[in-house]
C-alpha cells in the first residue's frame, strides 16, 4: 500500500464524500416531505390523489434507482427536460425514498391499535387531540426504526450516482484505478469513506431505536425491508 498516494488523494475523497453527503441530505429531506404528503393523502382519504399516490408508491418501490436515474438523465432530455447530474441525483433519491418513507409512516399509524383511539374519544378528546397526542407519539415510536433503516438505505443507494456522471466516491475510485492502477489504495479509501459516513449513522440509529421503544408494549412487530 502506497501511503503517500493515499495522503495525496485524500482531499479528493473528502470532496467526493461531501458531495455524497450533500445529495443524501437533500434527498432524504425531500423523501421525508414526499412521504408525509403521501401518507397524509392516504390518511385523509382524498379521492384521485389517493390513487395517484398509490401508483407512485408502487412504481417507485418496484423499480431500481439506477433505472430511474437513467430515465431522468438520458430519457427526459429527449422531451426537452434537461436536468443536471446533481438535480437528477437528488430527484431520483426523492422519487425512490418518498415511497419508503410513506410506507414507514403508514406502518406506524396503522400499528396504533384501534382501542387507543376509542379510549381517547371516550375520555372526551377531540379527533385532533387524539391524533396528535395519542396516535402520533405511538406511531413515531414504531416508525423510528423503519426511518433509520430507510436513511441508511438511501445513503447506500447514493453509490450509483457515478452512473449519471456525478463525481462521487465511486467515480473517483474508478478514475484512480483507471488512471494509476492504484487499485488497493483506491478501494481502501472507498471502503474507509463509506465506513466513516455510515458507521456513525448506523450506531446512532440503533441508539435511537432503543430510546423510542416506549410504545412497544412488548410487541416489537417491526417490519423492515425494502
Amino acid at each position: 500500500m502506497d501511503l503517500s498516494f493515499i495522503s495525496a488523494y485524500t482531499p479528493m475523497y473528502i470532496e467526493a464524500a461531501g458531495l455524497t453527503i450533500r445529495i443524501a441530505l437533500y434527498g432524504i429531506a425531500g423523501a421525508f416531505g414526499v412521504g408525509i404528503l403521501c401518507s397524509l393523502i392516504k390518511e385523509l382519504n382524498i379521492p384521485v390523489l389517493k390513487q395517484l399516490a398509490q401508483i407512485y408508491i408502487e412504481l417507485s418501490r418496484n423499480t431500481p434507482l439506477l433505472i430511474q436515474l437513467f430515465f431522468l438523465y438520458f430519457g427526459l432530455p429527449k422531451l426537452g427536460i434537461v436536468l443536471s447530474s446533481e438535480t437528477c441525483a437528488v430527484t431520483g433519491l426523492i422519487f425512490l425514498g418518498g415511497s419508503y418513507m410513506a410506507e414507514g409512516f403508514r406502518a406506524g399509524i396503522d400499528g396504533v391499535p384501534q382501542i387507543q383511539r376509542e379510549s381517547a374519544y371516550s375520555l372526551g378528546m377531540t379527533k385532533k387531540q387524539t391524533f396528535w397526542r395519542i396516535v402520533v407519539p405511538q406511531a413515531v415510536a414504531t416508525s423510528v426504526p423503519v426511518f433509520c433503516a430507510n436513511i441508511i438505505f438511501l445513503i447506500k443507494e447514493t453509490s450509483v450516482f457515478s452512473a449519471v456522471a456525478l463525481a462521487d466516491l465511486m467515480y473517483v475510485t474508478k478514475d484512480l484505478i483507471g488512471l494509476y492502477y492504484k487499485t488497493d489504495e483506491a478501494l481502501f479509501m472507498l471502503v474507509v469513506s463509506y465506513l466513516v459516513i455510515l458507521l456513525p449513522i448506523s450506531l446512532l440509529s440503533s441508539y435511537m431505536e432503543r430510546r423510542v421503544r416506549y410504545a412497544g408494549f412488548g410487541n416489537t412487530g417491526i417490519v423492515s425491508g425494502h
Binding site: 443507494e157 465511486m170 474508478k174 487499485t183 471502503v191 463509506y194 455510515l198 458507521l199
Partner: peptide, 14 residues
C-alpha cells in the same frame, strides 16, 4: 453498511 456497489468493486477490481 457497505453499499452493494462498493462490494462489487472490491470483488471485481480486487
Amino acid at each position: 453498511i457497505m453499499p452493494q456497489l462498493v462490494l462489487l468493486f472490491l470483488v471485481y477490481f480486487g
